[in-house]
Amino acid sequence: MIKPPVEELEKYYKTIRAPKMRLILSVQAEASRAVRGWLDSNGFLELLPPIIGPVTDPGIRGAKQATIDYYGKEYKVMSSAILYKQMLATALDKIYFFSPNIRLEPIESAQTGRHLVEFVQIDIEEADVDYKAAMATAEQLLSHTVNHVAEKMKKELDQLGRTLPRFRTPFRKITHAEAVEILKSYGEPVNPHAEIPWPQEEKLSKIIDEPFFIIDYPRGARGFYDKEDPARPGILKDFDLMYPEGYGEAASGAEREYEYSKVLARLRESGENPAKYGWYLDMLREGIRPTSGFGIGVERLTRYLCGLKAVWEARPYPKVAGVYSP
């Protein structure tokens, strides 16, 4: 747990003048170029991200959505553009965008060093592929980006005191159940039916000191759009990609549930009235292609590349839960 530097955040116009910030933001810009370069040359089409819509991804680990008044109707600011990614991949095959997201996270997230209320995800989605293909894309993209930045930004990274390990594919894969067992053997029992809590995730990322996937989360641990494996009821075809060295989650992805009746039943798990998802359900009812995809947090990527203590160092004007800063 790290305390956010409230004063530095409140007077951010001063904080950003520190020489270190120029280094960090240059690394970030280079990483973004590397990501775009790799995706563009692999046939992914960059699109403009949605900012608002009638619905967004429902609550993620207790985070609240931001609401705006849209000509008398409530619209949501994207907490994740996942529903749109399914729309776009169905139409355009392989897509990505840099998607700004808002999640009003619980106050305790302010001290994880890994959560911001406002952040950017590189959102990637591909039609007609399974989650293994999505993992292959994720590991190649991340390896390319990390190795490229390590080389191209060596001077900046040296000044930041950061040496990056060389990433090699394929990454190791462990199941969620195995992750739970490993943590248990290290004296860290966790709920086998839930996502791995933040401190334990960090610990696991130190224990397995190389980039790795946690795959096959249990149903109930993730959103309704992660596909349940028909051959293994209760198990989802999804993954988290983890950084080594205790930096925790890099990306989160899945094969998507895309059949109307299955989505409807899964939507009930969040206790919501499916009617709220109007356009999305219309789209599913009329039929979409199966898709898989993932999202990489830009600030977390920057934090890892630069070896920073917290994500609030990894972007301009960071918003930390409960802190009123510009």
Partner: peptide
């Protein structure tokens, strides 16, 4: 207001989701 629709799978996942989303 609607009574809500349940099956054992829906209820089980709903409780797990609550533990997942609101651990405290």
């Amino acid at each position: 207001s609607a009574p809500g629709t349940y099956t054992p799978e829906i209820l089980r996942s709903m409780i797990r989701l609550l533990h997942n989303n609101y651990p405290r």
